[in-house]
Amino acid sequence: MKKTTASKTSEEPDSFVELCREFLVSGFSAIPVKFGSACLACQLLYFKPHQVRGTDDSRPADRTLFVLNVPPYCTKDCLNRLFSRCGKVEAVLFCERPGGQIHTTDDTSTFFPRSQEIRTFKVAYVVFEKPSGLRKAAGLKLSEPFVLSTRDQPVVTGMRKWCQRYTQDRPDVAELQSELDSYMADYDKRKQEELEKEKAQGEEPDEEGWITVTRHGRTPGAPRTEAMEKKALKREKKKRSRRELMNFYTFQIRESKREHIAQLRKKFEEDKDKIAAMKANRRFRPY
């Protein structure tokens, strides 16, 4: 959809209601918004009830409002303040395009976020707690533009935003070390619980009398020391060098194969003679 930016001048309609009618898109309602109270230019948000094919638990059809032409600086808090006058908002979801993947932020780590902010015009899905909120929002009209950035709830943009992000990307060393220690402690605890569970399963037979054998074994052996590791590596190296010296040249490999085949043939002939002798010595003794 073509992005439309309208600013109020002397040639434009006297009221923003007429402005919304002039740039109205078929099937959508429009609300004018602007970044700050001192801004003259405004942006139109187009919205309508969301229609879903099939089932979607995150965007139910009877409680979800579909919003287009959302500017990059518009946050979830801004849309929550805008549409909360129609009813309590349960969630605000952002996508890069209609029907696309929902943009989520992983908050499990303070210092390593796994998702990036959408920096272009985006699509929003406003989910109300009750269907009545969607019905009120479908007929929502404003006589003046809705201000996104206020004194109480400012929207940080421009140089201040990049400076803030730069500061957030450089974490405090002590806090980072604390988070790493906490993560490793949870990891060690989880691994210990898995080992104890596997050990308990391996020692106790099930209903049919079978014992589960895990990759860790029923009784874990003593860990190898550094001296034991060196001895094992030395034995392996000696074995490898002996094998390489034995079959270093091509004619040596060929001769060893010939000797092996000759030994097999000799043993085969000896076994044939033994079988023939056993057959000759066998006698019929009925009584």
Rank of each mutant, 00 (worst) to 15 (best):
T4H: 09
T4L: 13
T5F: 00
A6F: 12
S10A: 15
E11P: 02
S15K: 08
R21H: 12
V25G: 07
S29M: 08
A30W: 10
V33W: 02
G36Q: 10
S37C: 04
C39L: 10
L40G: 13
Q51R: 15
V52E: 14
R53F: 13
D56H: 13
D57I: 13
R59L: 06
L68S: 07
N69Q: 13
N69L: 02
P71N: 06
Y73F: 14
C74W: 07
C74Y: 02
R81P: 03
L82V: 01
V89L: 04
V92P: 00
V92K: 08
F94G: 02
C95A: 13
G100I: 03
G100C: 06
P113I: 13
S115A: 13
R119E: 14
F121Y: 15
K122R: 12
V123C: 05
A124T: 01
Y125L: 01
V127H: 04
F128T: 02
F128Q: 00
G133K: 11
G133W: 09
R135Y: 13
L140S: 04
K141M: 14
L142D: 06
E144V: 03
P145C: 07
P145I: 01
S149D: 01
R151A: 12
P154E: 03
T157D: 04
R160H: 04
K161Q: 07
Q164G: 02
R165I: 09
R165F: 07
Y166E: 07
T167H: 02
P171L: 06
P171A: 02
V173I: 05
Y183V: 15
Y183L: 15
D188A: 13
R190M: 13
R190F: 11
Q192W: 03
E193V: 10
L195P: 01
K199H: 11
A200N: 11
Q201K: 15
E203Y: 05
G209H: 03
T214Q: 00
R215D: 15
R218W: 10
T219W: 02
R224W: 15
A227M: 00
K231E: 15
A232F: 08
R235Q: 13
K238T: 09
S241D: 15
E244S: 08
E244M: 12
N247M: 10
T250G: 01
F251R: 12
F251K: 12
R254K: 14
S256F: 06
E259D: 01
E259C: 09
E259M: 09
A262W: 05
L264W: 03
K266G: 02
E270T: 01
K274N: 09
I275P: 04
M278N: 03
M278K: 12
K279V: 12
A280C: 05
N281I: 00
R285I: 10
Y287Q: 09
